[in-house]
Design a binder for these strands. Structure first.
Length: 188
DNA sequence: CTCTCGATGTTCT
DNA sequence: GAACATCGAGAGG
């Protein structure tokens, strides 16, 4: 069962923490590839200078302004797709970036697509998109339908085992936003 | 292992 | 024209 829209319609930091331990699933022609979410980052609204919504609504970031429970997928560095899950009520632009998953099913297909193995399959935001064949066609995709791409409950993660740090790759943001502890990982 | 650097195309100034 | 929520190859230790 896919997570309900109510799961996403909450404060982004709460959703980012709660997504740890959930299972991200990609189904294509009956074949399933999935992984357990182990690293996330929160991007919260127009006041967050690291968030794409900081400079207002554009064609690229419009999905973040829409209802929660949809995918915000964008293309960057001329090479890579990144997957975000839209949070908070419609009109509040915010999302959680999925930075890493632990491969769970469909490993053979992931290895073939990535031309890598082991940790290198899905330990980065662009790597997991490649392993799960997520591209810009999924921008705006409704994750609550339970088809093609969705998230399911899997295992509870104790707050004790969650580590938080500053976000990665946002050197362009203001100091306060650069230092915010809005990256969450499962402490191995 | 660490560090540096180039790739590549869309978006925004 | 610059910047970019990254990755992987290659060089060096």
């Amino acid at each position: 069962m896919p997570l309900h829209r109510k799961f996403y319609n909450r404060p982004t930091l709460t959703v980012a923490r709660d997504l740890l331990g959930k299972r991200l699933i990609r189904q294509i022609d009956g074949a399933e590839r999935s992984g357990i979410i182990v690293e996330t980052e929160a991007y919260i609204g127009i006041k967050d200078s690291a968030c794409h919504a900081h400079r207002g609504k554009t064609l690229r970031n419009a999905v973040m302004f829409g209802p929660p429970g949809h995918a915000y997928v964008y293309f960057t560095y001329g090479l890579h797709y990144l997957l975000n899950l839209v949070t908070e009520e419609e009109g509040q632009p915010a999302a959680v970036l999925i930075r890493a998953i632990e491969p769970f099913t469909g490993l053979d297909e992931m290895r073939a697509l990535r031309r890598r193995h082991g940790k290198e399959l899905t330990n980065g935001p662009a790597k997991l998109c490649q392993a799960l064949s997520i591209n810009k066609d999924f921008n705006g995709w409704d994750l609550t339908q339970g088809i093609h791409l969705w998230v399911e409950d899997f295992q509870a993660v104790q707050s004790k085992s969650i580590l938080s740090t500053p976000r990665i790759g946002i050197g362009y943001a203001q100091k306060l936003d650069r230092e915010a502890l809005w990256r969450f990982l499962i402490h191995s």
